Amino acid sequence: MTFAAKLVTLPLGTFRGLAQGKNWTVTRSLVSGGKGEKLVAEALDGSDYISLNLYHLGAGDLLRPCEMSETKVRRFVAALVPI
């Protein structure tokens, strides 16, 4: 499953999730009339934070992590299971 395909399976709005052995509060929202997506997550124990934007462009999707590595956000989204 591609990154964008996995992201679209996640609920819009705020929800709880499990990833990497931690409980998270996650918010996924659409931006720019649905031409982009934003995901922000915080581990409930305060130990980690995830923030990313994914833009759907004519040339393909463009992932922009916010002050963290692309690898980190890709691994997080791949592991995230809503609860």
Results as ranks from 00 to 15, higher is better:
Leu10Gln: 13
Leu54Asp: 11
Leu12Tyr: 03
Gly17Lys: 02
Thr2Val: 07
Val8His: 10
Ala5Met: 05
Met68Thr: 03
Thr14Asn: 01
Ser32Trp: 09
Ala43Leu: 13
Pro11Asn: 05
Lys22Gln: 03
Asp45Pro: 00
Glu42Ser: 13
Leu12Ala: 00
Leu12Lys: 02
Gly33Ile: 05
Lys35His: 12
Leu12Asp: 08
Glu70Leu: 11
Ala5Lys: 11
Glu42Trp: 07
Arg75Gln: 14
Trp24Phe: 14
Met1Ser: 11
Arg74Asn: 15
Leu57Glu: 15
Asp45Met: 03
Thr25Tyr: 12
Leu52Gln: 12
Trp24Gly: 10
Leu7Tyr: 11
Ser32Gly: 13
Leu80Asn: 04
Val31Ser: 04
Leu44Val: 11
Phe15Asn: 09
Glu70Ser: 15
Arg16Gly: 07
Pro11Ile: 15
Pro11Phe: 05
Ser69Phe: 13
Glu42Asp: 10
Tyr49Cys: 07
Lys38Arg: 07
Trp24Lys: 10
Leu30Arg: 10
Trp24Glu: 07
Arg64Met: 09
Asn23Arg: 14
Leu62Phe: 12
Arg74Tyr: 14
Thr2Tyr: 00
Leu54Val: 06
Gly33Pro: 01
Ala79Cys: 09
Ala78Cys: 08
Arg16Asn: 07
Arg75His: 12
Ala4Gly: 10
Val40Trp: 03
Ala4Phe: 09
Leu54Gly: 06
Thr9Gly: 06
Pro65Met: 11
Ser69Thr: 14
Met68Glu: 07
Glu67Arg: 05
Val31Arg: 02
Gly60Leu: 11
Leu52Ile: 04
Asn53Glu: 14
Leu63Pro: 00
Thr2Leu: 01
Met1Tyr: 09
His56Met: 14
Phe76Trp: 08
Leu12Trp: 06
Glu67Ser: 03
Ser47Thr: 11
Lys38Tyr: 04
Lys6His: 02
Leu12Ile: 01
Asp61Arg: 06
Val81His: 08
Leu54Phe: 06
Leu63Thr: 04
Ser47His: 02
Ile50Leu: 04
Thr9Leu: 03
Cys66Tyr: 09
Arg75Glu: 13
Arg16Trp: 10
Thr9Ala: 03
Leu54Met: 13
Val77Arg: 01
Val31Asp: 09
Arg64His: 01
Ser32Asp: 03
Asn23Ala: 15
Leu57Val: 13
Val77Pro: 03
Leu18Asp: 08
Ala79Leu: 04
Thr27Leu: 04
Glu70Cys: 11
Leu44Arg: 14
Asn23Leu: 09
Thr2Asn: 01
Phe3Val: 02
Gly13Val: 01
Leu63Arg: 09
Asn23Met: 03
Val77Ala: 13
Lys22Glu: 02
Ser32Gln: 04
Val26His: 09
Ser29Met: 00
Lys6Val: 07
Leu12His: 02
Lys22Pro: 03
Leu39Met: 05
Lys35Cys: 05
Glu70Asp: 15
Glu70Ile: 11
Gly13Lys: 09
Leu63Val: 08
Phe3Ile: 00
Leu39Gln: 14
Ala43Lys: 10
Ala19Ile: 01
Arg28Val: 04
Phe15Val: 00
Lys38Trp: 03
Lys22Tyr: 00
Asp61Cys: 08
Val26Cys: 15
Lys72His: 14
Glu70Met: 15
Gly13Pro: 02
Ile50Arg: 12
Leu18Lys: 12
Lys72Ile: 14
Phe15Thr: 10
Leu18Phe: 06
Ala43Asn: 13
Val26Pro: 11
Thr2Cys: 03
Pro11Trp: 04
His56Phe: 15
Glu67Thr: 02
Ala79Trp: 08
